[in-house]
Structure formats: C-alpha cells, structure tokens
Computed example of a mutant assay.
Amino acid sequence: MPHDEHRTIDPAELPPVVTRYLAAHRDRDTDTALTTLTDDASVTDDGTTYEGTPAIAEWLGKAAGEYTYTTELTAAHRTDATHVTATHHLEGDFPGGQVDLRFRFTLRDGLIERLVIAP
C-alpha cells in the first residue's frame, strides 16, 4: 500500500471506529466511547495523559459534565493507514468561549490505541 502523505479527506472517509468514538464523545456516551478503544489505550487532553480504560472512563465522565458546548467537525486528515485527525470547532461556556481542537487518532487492529486532543 502506498504511503499517504498527510492529506485532507472527506469526514465521511474517517474510519468507522473514529466516527463511532466522535459521536459517543459528542453525545457524552462513555460506555460506547470505551468500546472503540484498545485495552491499553491512552488519551491525552489538556496536557494530561490517561492510560487504560478505567482512567479514560473517569476522564470522559469529568469532561462531559465540566462545560456546556457545541461541536462541529470542520476537517479531517489522514497521515497513513493508522493515523487520522479530526478537527472540531467548539463553542461554549469554557474559558475563551471557542476553540478549534484536533483529535489525533492512532489506530491498531480496528480500534483506537491513542488519542491526543490539542488545539
């Protein structure tokens, strides 16, 4: 398979597991979000890394209740077969009121192994 240089893709081309995670994250559905992750997954958000599903479940629960916001998927990129990025525009009652966040996914065996969320 040829190496895909970092390229823009239609958000509909995101891997199904990524689409499922993003929908669950948006809907604050922790149980569904956890089904998209490997057992040894890690998530880095706001400079903190959460290792394994118990820590990620706690982070998801906390993140869901902290602020009220809307989110819109504005772009998607594929670096290669196991690395994709989904960019979201968020607006809400968090400090600053709006931000563009990149959800950088690393996939393994059809699941999410690593997620880094950063501007």
Rank of each mutant, 00 (worst) to 15 (best):
V17Q: 03
D27P: 06
A41Q: 01
F94P: 14
T48R: 13
A86E: 05
E13P: 01
L37P: 03
R108L: 14
L22M: 15
G96S: 01
R108W: 01
L14A: 07
A23C: 04
T85D: 03
R108A: 15
D10M: 04
F94W: 07
Y67H: 14
G96A: 08
V99M: 05
L115A: 11
A64R: 03
L111T: 00
G52N: 13
M1E: 03
D93K: 09
F94I: 10
R108S: 15
I9E: 08
P54D: 08
L115D: 14
D109F: 12
Q98Y: 09
E13N: 10
R102C: 06
P119N: 07
A33P: 07
E5S: 10
R20T: 14
R78H: 07
A23N: 12
F103D: 14
Y67T: 07
R104H: 15
T49Y: 11
G96C: 08
P95S: 08
R102W: 00
L34I: 07
L101Y: 14
A63G: 02
Y21V: 01
P54R: 04
T71N: 05
S42M: 10
T38G: 05
Y50K: 04
I112W: 02
M1F: 11
D109A: 14
Q98P: 03
T79Q: 03
L22P: 02
F103C: 00
Y50T: 07
T48L: 11
E51Q: 13
A24N: 10
A57E: 15
P54K: 05
D10W: 01
V84L: 06
Y21N: 03
T53F: 03
T53P: 05
L60Y: 07
F105Q: 03
A57S: 15
L111D: 04
G47E: 02
G47W: 05
H6M: 08
A55I: 07
E51L: 07
A81Q: 05
V116T: 11
H6R: 08
E5Y: 03
P95H: 09
T68S: 15
A55F: 12
S42L: 12
R108E: 14
D109M: 13
Y50A: 13
T71D: 10
I112G: 04
I112K: 04
E91R: 13
D10R: 05
F94L: 11
T32P: 01
V17Y: 02
T19G: 14
G52K: 08
V18R: 00
L22G: 01
P16G: 13
R26S: 10
Q98R: 13
A81K: 06
T32S: 06
T85L: 09
D31L: 08
